[in-house]
């Protein structure tokens, strides 16, 4: 996907020069390999800092919330769905946005790369088509990108943006025959004791740093429930029950809104696969309400509206 970089730069330059947008939001190369950073550019002469490759794993929609200016933004499948969700939730208006759509072929899991090179220090990653070369002090290895996709990208069925003003390339083929909920089904088959054991073990290492919340484009409340002290909704310690409560609440706030962009897992400093919480909600939203978040700017989310035929078998 690195070949999109030049097109993104040209587009951003044109948009900024013509005054169509005040700022352009994209990614730049990180200071260390595999850690590309979001960047907001307002000077057309500085567009050369923009960068795009298969290591742009954060969600840019996070930087749109309540902005007042005209914004150019790049968006692949999941990011565009978050933009739709933002529009639906009145966090930004469509008229303010110029969306440069990216047909995405998936993002590389930097942790998988590190594991593959035996946790040696990676000094450079170069992408060539569907392969990439990782090099460092005394080693250089080439891998197939398809085998190193993040777990959410590997089962992604919305690679192309759902909303855009122009595309940097023609749409890519959507993946077929992937089951996004294979892992959820495995957990569903467990008995309550095993389930509890699985999730307790999973969040054991949580530091309560809230990086997952901060990286999530859905988490834009001025004061998060975890930061409030009057009333204090949830204990602030790393007591296992407090941590579990935090994770349940964080996930439930994403019910019917999560696009499975994977930003939360990417930023977790201890590598907790917390998408297991939100994926269950995504699965239920799909099964009960035939709903996948952010696909249609004209449809209200299921938890936002009442319909007489809503699923309600659980009400006694």
């Amino acid at each position: 996907m690195i070949e999109y970089t030049a097109i993104i730069r040209d587009t951003a330059k044109k948009l900024l020069k013509d005054g169509k947008v005040d700022v352009f939001i994209g990614y730049k190369k990180g200071t260390v390999p595999m850690m590309n950073e979001p960047v907001v550019i307002s000077d057309p002469e500085k567009v050369d800092t923009l960068h795009w490759d298969s290591l742009c794993g954060l969600n840019l929609c996070n930087y749109l919330t309540k902005r007042k200016d005209k914004i150019g933004i790049i968006a692949n499948g999941c990011n565009s769905r978050n933009i739709v969700t933002h529009i639906l939730e009145n966090q930004i208006s469509r008229e303010q946005l110029y969306i440069v759509g990216i047909p995405c072929t998936g993002v590389i899991d930097h942790r998988a790369v590190l594991r593959a090179v035996g946790n040696k220090e990676v000094l450079d990653v170069q992408e060539q088509g569907d392969k990439f070369t990782v090099s460092g002090n005394g080693f250089s290895e080439t891998f197939d990108k398809a085998k190193f996709l993040r777990t959410n990208c590997a089962v992604c069925t919305h690679r192309n943006p759902v909303i855009y003003d122009e595309m940097v390339a023609s749409p890519v083929k959507e993946q077929e025959g992937v089951d996004p909920f294979e892992d959820v089904k495995k957990i569903e088959a467990m008995d309550p004791e095993k389930k509890w054991g699985f999730f307790t073990k999973m969040i054991e290492r949580c530091l309560r740093c809230y990086a997952c919340r901060n990286s999530c484009p859905l988490c834009y409340c001025p004061t998060c429930f975890v930061d409030e002290s009057k009333p204090q909704w949830v204990g602030k310690s790393i007591d296992p029950t407090d941590t579990m409560t935090f994770h349940i609440m964080r996930a439930y706030h994403c019910a019917g809104r999560c696009t499975d962009c994977g930003a939360c897992e990417r930023v977790c400093p201890v590598g907790i696969p917390m998408r297991q919480f939100t994926k269950k909600l995504n699965k239920d939203a799909l099964e009960y309400f035939s709903w996948e978040a952010g696909l249609n700017p004209d449809a209200r989310p299921p938890l936002d509206v009442y319909k007489p035929d809503d699923y309600n078998d659980f009400v006694k």
Partner: peptide
């Protein structure tokens, strides 16, 4: 959906 999530995590149905 909340019931679904809690039961997914291990709270017993019922």
């Amino acid at each position: 959906m909340l019931k679904g999530l809690l039961e997914h995590i291990g709270i017993e149905p019922g």
